[in-house]
Simulated scan of single mutants.
Amino acid sequence: MTARRTITLVATAGLVLLLSACANQIDAGVAQGADVPGFWWGLWHGFVFPWAWIGSLFDPDIAVYAVPNKGGWYDFGFFVGITVLGGGSFFGSKKGRKD
C-alpha cells in the first residue's frame, strides 16, 4: 500500500470517527413499556424505509424512525430490515456472476 493511500485511509477513518462521536440519542428517545416499539417494529420500519422516506418528503406526519423506541433492539431490527430489503450480502456475492 502506498503512503498516500495510507494517509487517505487514516484521514477518512479519523473523519468518520470524529463525526460518529457527535451522534447520540436523547434519553427521551429511549423508553420502556408494552406500547413502545422494539425489535419487531424496528424490523418492520427497516423493511418499509424506502417507501416511508419517499412519503416523508411529501407529508410531515410520516416518519422513517420511531421515537421513542426501546433503543438497541429497535435499532438492530431497523438495521436488519434495511439490510435484508437492500439485498444484504446477496448483491455482493460472486455467485451467479459470469466473469
Rank of each mutant, 00 (worst) to 15 (best):
V30L: 05
L18K: 04
G42P: 00
Q32G: 06
W51R: 03
F91C: 07
D59W: 14
A63V: 06
A21N: 11
S89R: 10
V16R: 03
G38S: 15
K94R: 10
S56K: 02
T2L: 04
A21V: 06
Q32A: 13
P68F: 05
F91A: 09
L19R: 14
V48F: 01
L43S: 05
V80S: 06
I62D: 09
I82R: 15
F76S: 07
M1W: 07
F78L: 09
V67G: 05
G29E: 06
G46L: 02
A63N: 10
G38H: 08
T2W: 06
Y74F: 14
D35Y: 00
S93L: 13
L85N: 07
K95T: 10
A23C: 11
N24Q: 14
N24K: 14
A63L: 06
F47I: 13
R4N: 11
T12P: 00
G77D: 01
F79L: 11
N69D: 14
F49T: 01
D99M: 12
G71I: 07
T83I: 09
A3F: 13
S89I: 15
L17E: 00
K98N: 11
V16C: 14
A23Y: 09
Q32K: 11
D61K: 08
T2M: 03
G14S: 12
T2H: 12
D59Q: 06
L85Y: 04
G33M: 07
D99K: 15
G86P: 01
F79S: 13
F47V: 15
L57V: 05
L15Q: 04
L9S: 13
I82S: 05
R5G: 10
T12D: 02
V30W: 00
A63E: 12
G86I: 01
F76H: 01
G46R: 00
K98R: 13
G14T: 03
L18Y: 12
G77S: 04
F58I: 08
V16A: 14
V36F: 01
L57E: 13
S20F: 15
K98Y: 08
K98S: 10
G81P: 08
L19P: 05
W53C: 09
F91L: 15
N69A: 13
G96L: 09
D75Y: 01
